[in-house]
Design a protein around this nucleic acid. Sequence first.
DNA 1: CAGTGGTCTAGACCACTGG
DNA 2: CAGTGGTCTAGACCACTGC
Lengths: 268, 268
Amino acid sequence: MHSLPPSSADSAPSAHADAGLGSGVSATPAFSPLYQQIKALILQSLQAGEWKPSAAIPSEMDLAARYKVSQGTVRKAIDELAAENLLLRRQGKGTFVATHSERQVQYRFLRLLPDSGDVQSEGPAQRQIIDCKRTRASAEIAKIMGLRQGDAVLQVRRVLAFSGTPTILEDLWLPGARFKGLTAEKLRADNGPMYALFETEFGVRMVRADEKIRAVLPDTEQCALLHISPQTPLLSVERTSYTYNDEPMELRRGLYLTETHYYRNALS
Amino acid sequence: MHSLPPSSADSAPSAHADAGLGSGVSATPAFSPLYQQIKALILQSLQAGEWKPSAAIPSEMDLAARYKVSQGTVRKAIDELAAENLLLRRQGKGTFVATHSERQVQYRFLRLLPDSGDVQSEGPAQRQIIDCKRTRASAEIAKIMGLRQGDAVLQVRRVLAFSGTPTILEDLWLPGARFKGLTAEKLRADNGPMYALFETEFGVRMVRADEKIRAVLPDTEQCALLHISPQTPLLSVERTSYTYNDEPMELRRGLYLTETHYYRNALS
DNA sequence: CAGTGGTCTAGACCACTGG
DNA sequence: CAGTGGTCTAGACCACTGC
């Protein structure tokens, strides 16, 4: 009925099982509740691409049958995945693989808002790809991205403008192995969010990210690109983005002009 | 058994009830699931101070009996409150009213980390209260804090230093009505986080906050207080903190020196 | 050991979606 | 209308805490 990858095909976890994995090398607790095991199985299917982005995954009842557990257990697993923005539940319709294309969460990772607060009236950013070239990872870049020094990387530089005013200057580094065929033309041709392009074209889904923020002054090159004076303070935003399994997939260094915009953060 | 406040004493919500509230003026959905109603009741008890900070609330079974619902329903209500950091669950012990004093979440709202990443080795900040005076709310302050212009407000200015280096300059505004008796002496006498002091001394618990972040250059006064040159870019962090019910309770304007520290943010 | 929260189940019914 | 996720219940057992 449901052909699964060879490894743990329909490995129905025995109820109250320990999920053992033996007395492995790692110092893991060596125990996890059933719903965590189910969650891990679903995660595997997501990684393996068994269900494509924006497609529906099987219903809770189906999954319960597949894994030989109750619906409530599957539900709890899905609940967590939905809370992590990996899945999207829609009552009456089903559960879907989350995407960076949905209107509601578009630019989920971009926290810069106009002072007016009205994102709609401002409209989408004008994007300009300055550069897109293949290089080799420096020691610093390699370390952050989990690569080896000298590994192929793709480097992109672009400027985002709002209402005609250049506001963001970004440098991106991507692992060359996973982004074969990405060119400046492809980036320019596309309209939606870049992360959506990564999903559809390269099957790479960014799941979470960390940012380190500082205040800096621009160098002369940066001044020219943003049309500002060297006395203009800027927000430096260094972001590391991760796919499934906390695998780093992108390093992004942004300079944000905060004259008419601000970086919003919610603490809770 | 458990004497409740007069209002909605043991208002056992009828199962599957609509919670009606009539065809009110507001355009609320006019329906909420049982566990949301329970959540609201628990929230009321928290606001009313029925359970003090760091104290245990009744067990799930007790609450289920009180509200005449199943344990699972109470559990779901508590789950959400715990997710919002209002409650803290501890297996085998009970559920507790969350505090800003717990080691794990201390400085939950302070996102500035040393470049070394090691908060421990850096040790706690040295605090210096520059000023603490009673004034009247300007139109701007009043608007943000939900007060009327001219209402009494308490204004505090302080500097935080790490390893002897002044790093943060903060101005705070607090509603005078809720913070009677707060003086520079009291602030200086205290050691723990300021938000913990607010809880124990004034019964004000900050639940969430919003921050607007910009890059700025300091004026001459700020330069003097932070021992920096006017060419040093700083992070401007404007924070509005809220108590229960999204009631604004504090406005805080901070200037962060990001030479040896960075503002950390996790996106997900 | 009793009491707490945490997991799991099975079954009922509700609310929403789309044919 | 059937199928989906969402809520609610009742009861069993597990894991952790502290006496």
